[in-house]
Amino acid sequence: MQAKILVAIPVFDAVLERLREHFDVEACGESAITERDELVARLQGKAGIFVAGTPRIDAALLDACPDLRAVCSMAVGFNNIDLAACTARRVLVSNAPGVLTETTADFGFALMMATARRIAESEHFLRAGQWTEWRYDLFAGADVHRATLGVLGMGRIGQAIARRGALGFGMPVIYHNRSRLDAGVEQQLGARWVDKPTLLREADHLVIVVPYSAESHHLIGAAELALMKPGATLTNVARGGVVDDAALAQALRERRIAAAGLDVFEGEPALHPDLLTVPNVVLTPHIASASLPTRRAMADLAADNLIAALGNGRNAGRPPTALNPEVLQKT
């Protein structure tokens, strides 16, 4: 008898068909499951769930869904999943790191460039029919080439962004991370570790790529923004909540920094209304990994994890990107 799973988000038809070869699949349809009560109801009798961003999977939900054995996400971030609670109940959790590194770095760099060069702001001006003459200062922004790139969070994606800046645009790269990179990696990237205040003071373009956690909540707030140069830009492709969006909107309105590019927001898909009232911000709806090849790779990896975690016989195995593989050990 096939294990039952819930696919809680819309996904590629080919991935659904692959899952149906191994499981009794209940798919969410055209819209993701966003209400907690619905998620609990539809998880009854299910051994696994295929997710990205869903209502929080925590101890209370797990206790209400006692058959659940695997939570497999096609996203990298897993702050919507209580890993400790899952581990305590021997529920396997997996994410999808690695496969989206280069695509997200492409987008992060593009968003930073659009922010620096005021692309969105100037497009709105043009579409509104306001362009009537050439002026020397018409939407004059900041240079990217040879400007100082600051990277907050030097994991896979941060390093990929640093490479683009250093090798492609001749940017001096400074970074701050909880742990310093090996000297050889720093040399390869042309990157210099600095403390956080120095990063904020010296960066012409700050790109944030840290994972979200209780420790990184509002890592960039009013005090941190006050340290930045008036001509600096801030780009967030990390997670909503890492930046205090209200404080950022105020800093942008008062021109205490030049501009910001945001792909993630606290409480998304809702966003702070003040961000919609300032012109010097580029807003995108959490699409940094949204190329078709990358999204397919993310979905396939989540399917690989589910099949390995819940499969029988030759289909059983070690999920390739398990976050708590110890739950698979026999007691």
Rank of each mutant, 00 (worst) to 15 (best):
L39E: 01
D304Y: 12
G317R: 04
A288L: 02
A316F: 04
T132N: 14
L6F: 03
R156M: 12
Q44A: 14
R117F: 07
S122R: 11
A299F: 01
P293L: 04
P319F: 09
V7I: 10
A8Y: 03
V173N: 08
P293T: 01
A302N: 04
D143N: 15
G221I: 10
F50Q: 03
A258N: 06
D58Y: 00
L206R: 03
V11L: 13
R178T: 09
T104S: 10
E133W: 15
A303W: 03
A222Q: 13
E121H: 12
L39Q: 02
G168S: 10
W131C: 12
L100K: 01
R18W: 06
A162R: 09
V51C: 11
L225Y: 08
L199D: 02
G231Q: 12
R314M: 14
P97N: 07
G311E: 03
C86P: 09
P172T: 07
A191L: 04
V237D: 00
V71T: 06
D300Y: 05
A160P: 14
Y212P: 00
R135V: 14
I307V: 15
I307F: 13
G168Y: 11
D304C: 12
I161H: 10
F107W: 01
G153C: 03
S213A: 11
L62C: 11
L234M: 07
H145A: 15
A166M: 14
R239M: 00
E266N: 04
V327Q: 06
A297L: 02
R164Q: 13
I287Q: 06
S179M: 11
L199W: 05
R192D: 06
R118C: 13
A70Q: 05
P320Y: 08
E102L: 14
R178W: 09
L200H: 02
V151Q: 09
A114C: 14
V71M: 08
P172W: 10
P285E: 04
L92S: 06
A8C: 09
T198I: 04
A249S: 04
A223W: 05
R192V: 11
P97L: 06
E266T: 01
R253Q: 13
E186M: 03
W134L: 15
L92D: 01
A47N: 14
L248F: 02
R201N: 05
S31I: 15
L252N: 01
V173R: 07
K229L: 13
Q329I: 15
Y175C: 06
Q329G: 15
L283R: 06
T104A: 10
H124T: 15
I174K: 07
C28V: 12
D82C: 01
H124V: 14
A226S: 14
A322D: 07
K330W: 14
A59Q: 09
P273M: 09
A110Q: 07
G168P: 12
A147Y: 05
R163Y: 13
S216N: 12
T87Q: 09
P285G: 05
A32I: 10
D24H: 12
N79M: 00
L301S: 03
L292T: 15
P172R: 10
R69L: 08
L16T: 13
I174A: 07
H22G: 10
A247C: 07
